[in-house]
């Protein structure tokens, strides 16, 4: 009996344009997380502070604003504005979630393909390194967007919905575009950095540990350096502190760590440049395949 049940069949159908070949790679990388309960729980936990503190504030003001007993309490509540959003967007909890998602989704982006030797299978197709990296980066970027920009959108929708204050949308337009800018510059740079780190190792575990080390090393190191020198340059060691400052600057609020806006911008430009440099060196001569 022949080993194959049917003969070889040729394919004469259509082929998609070269520019769209990244889509299945992106989908295969990103989609599995939406089926993991732990990941969905993480998403809920990310939204929770926004709903509780943000939407809850709006709810309290609208529902209890007329009650004389609650008026004093309601007066104490901070307004939902750029300052409040900056605090929520860049607090310790949000940063912690950012690191978890970067480690969980990001550490294996390139490293796993190197370990399983599927990287050469992908690059041996009509995919190309740029499309491959775009697909992988987009997978992580989509989730970082979900954990940073989407909660702000949810907050704005709840606030406007509960208060009926549509003027909020143009009086505090910076809440939305500032957050989008922060997401693109900050977490966006983080995506490229994670890709660069992931391209340096065959072990997603090592990449994850390196990410954790880099993110969490900076905080105590910078805090202590700042305590010694009182110079904003001390925060350069801490990616999380710089992210925080960037968030404040994008939303037009003065950051607590007194990091100047130029310093923030240059920091992320330098980090982006270094990460792109690593990716270029790794992929241009295919060193990443060795």
């Amino acid at each position: 009996m022949p080993i194959f049940d049917q003969g070889y069949q040729a394919y004469g159908g259509e082929r998609r344009a070269l520019g769209r070949r990244w889509i299945p790679v992106w989908r295969e990388e990103a989609a599995p997380y939406l089926h993991k309960r732990a990941f969905l729980l993480l998403l809920v936990l990310a939204l929770l502070p926004w709903l509780v503190f943000g939407a809850g504030l709006s709810f309290a003001k609208t529902q209890f604003g007329d009650s004389s007993a609650m008026q004093e309490f309601v007066k104490q509540l901070p307004p939902v504005d750029e300052s409040w959003v900056a605090k929520l967007l860049t607090n310790g909890w949000d940063n912690f979630l950012l690191v978890i998602v970067s480690v969980w989704v990001g550490s294996g982006l390139v490293a796993r393909d190197r370990k399983e030797r599927t990287l050469e299978v992908f690059l041996g197709r009509a995919l190309g390194p740029m499309q491959y990296l775009w697909a992988k980066g987009a997978a992580l970027g989509a989730y970082l967007l979900l954990f940073t920009f989407v909660p702000v959108v949810v907050l704005v929708v709840f606030h406007v919905g509960l208060t009926g204050d549509t003027a909020f949308l143009w009086q505090h337009a910076r809440v939305l575009w500032g957050t989008l800018l922060y997401t693109l510059l900050g977490p966006g740079t983080l995506v490229v950095t994670v890709l660069a780190l992931s391209s340096l190792s065959r072990s997603p575990r090592i990449v994850g540990l390196a990410l954790i080390g880099i993110m969490f090393f900076g905080l105590p190191a910078s805090a202590i350096l700042w305590a010694i020198t009182r110079s904003p340059m001390a925060w350069t060691f801490s990616v999380l502190a710089e992210l925080r400052a960037l968030g404040y600057h994008c939303l037009g609020v003065a950051p607590e760590m007194e990091i100047p806006v130029l310093h923030s911008a240059l920091y992320f430009l330098a980090l982006l440049g270094a990460s792109l440099g690593i990716l270029y060196l790794r992929f241009s001569r295919r060193e990443v395949l060795r």
Partner: peptide, 23 residues
């Protein structure tokens, strides 16, 4: 997946995958 990366539409890629694996 590799069929899609090589340009086959999704449905065609799945069909081709079944065919080649049978083959």
């Amino acid at each position: 997946l590799l069929g899609e990366v090589s340009g086959l539409p999704r449905r065609a890629a799945v069909e081709r995958a079944h065919e080649t694996l049978q083959y």
